[in-house]
Design a protein around this nucleic acid. Structure first.
Lengths: 208, 208
DNA sequence: ATATGCTTGAAACATTCGTTTCAAGCATAT
DNA sequence: ATATGCTTGAAACGAATGTTTCAAGCATAT
């Protein structure tokens, strides 16, 4: 098994696929475009990944790795409010981090998958959303107290997700409504502070 | 000019296009599928609407009519809090109303357009989002008081939109996370109450 | 009744898609 | 050196796409 040429085209194919799928979406992405960027032959996709669907599955496996159980990051000795803040900060920096393109592309693909679910959404939810949702639910449960009904807990959990995700979703709308708004990725701390305060206010309103 | 057959196929084409575009998205929708549902010939699309893009533009013009200036519905003599509640209720019933399929399909197309903006997103935002956003901003300005910075106002406005829209966006995710959650369209009042309380709590937290 | 203009229908158009084929290339093992 | 197995490249495949063509149909106006 030769390493450099073989693995190179295969991984180049994967990297190009991440770009194109994030940019165009699955339907609009073409294998010829992907192979072109990877400087590979058109047949390479089917050879290395079986099909376009197989390549997409490989992309999802790459950007949503199975072992992504990072929800032990938050130190448990903090107050639930501070843990909520850490949760929000972690999610926000993950979404708006400009360091790696892969992260932005991950959320772009995630967004596309939400707007037009394919059979792979289950996989993404299971490995990418579920752990964080459980963690958030745990935090909210402590903040809201043991007497909070499940309905409230579910709604509030969805709400806080919404505050983060929508900022990703409605970005193109905000660009059209208020082009001069403060960029979320520049003043990330500002954004985190706001979401934290707003969320906490909302939660307390549900409590009392 | 004959009315019944001519206009019938043209409007049948439009109705079928709304269905297919909402269901499959623009790229995945095919003119043959649309014409099939409209019981029309394949050439009918290009004859009546010039092209597939022209048909899509006609669909947008149909479900996002220009004269949609409905933001005078809310009675101005209410308190800003009550107007916020009315705003949330109006938006919620608009999103989750089960009466007309067209409304649900409108939001489906809107969602697709947000996830993968085409050149028509400007049009939608201008005629569908802008008036409501202005109205919400006006309400929030009263609630937050005159001293609230524009940043806070913009953030809070986006937040409340988020609470509503995300419930539309993450529906397929919620189906996978908590399949037994209360359906928002059944207990719509419940949902409205929650969002209103949560929002008001968040707003007050931004004030103090 | 005849002619005109708009609409439809069947067929084919050219293009693009994902996929397949197969020979050539190349590294490694014998 | 020879053979084997994996990988690449060019070409073509069949299917599906949006679009066009053109003759036939049909209503209305003269």
């Amino acid at each position: 098994m030769n390493d450099s040429p073989d693995v190179n085209t295969k991984s180049a194919l994967l990297a190009a696929a991440i770009q194109v799928f994030a940019d165009k979406g699955f339907d609009s992405a073409t294998v010829r475009d992907i192979c072109g960027r990877a400087k590979a032959n058109v047949a390479a996709v089917n050879y290395h990944y079986g099909s376009k669907d197989g390549l997409y599955a490989a992309v999802l496996a790459e950007i949503f790795p199975t072992g992504e159980e990072r929800h032990a990051q938050i130190t448990p000795d903090l107050s639930p409010e501070e843990r909520l803040r850490e949760f929000i900060r972690g999610l926000a920096s993950d979404i708006f981090e400009r360091g790696s393109d892969t992260i932005a592309q991950r959320w772009a693909i995630f967004l596309r998958e939400m707007a037009k679910p394919s059979g792979n959404l289950d996989y993404i939810v299971q490995h990418h959303v579920q752990p964080r949702a459980d963690e958030l639910r745990c935090i909210l449960s402590e903040i809201l107290g043991p007497n909070a009904p499940d309905t409230t807990l579910a709604y509030c959990s969805a709400n806080i997700w919404a505050l983060m995700l929508d900022h990703l979703l409605i970005q193109p709308i905000l660009d059209r409504l208020t082009p001069d708004r403060p960029a979320a990725d520049n003043g990330l701390d500002l954004f985190v502070d706001h979401v934290f305060r707003f969320s906490l206010g909302g939660l307390k309103a549900m409590k009392g």
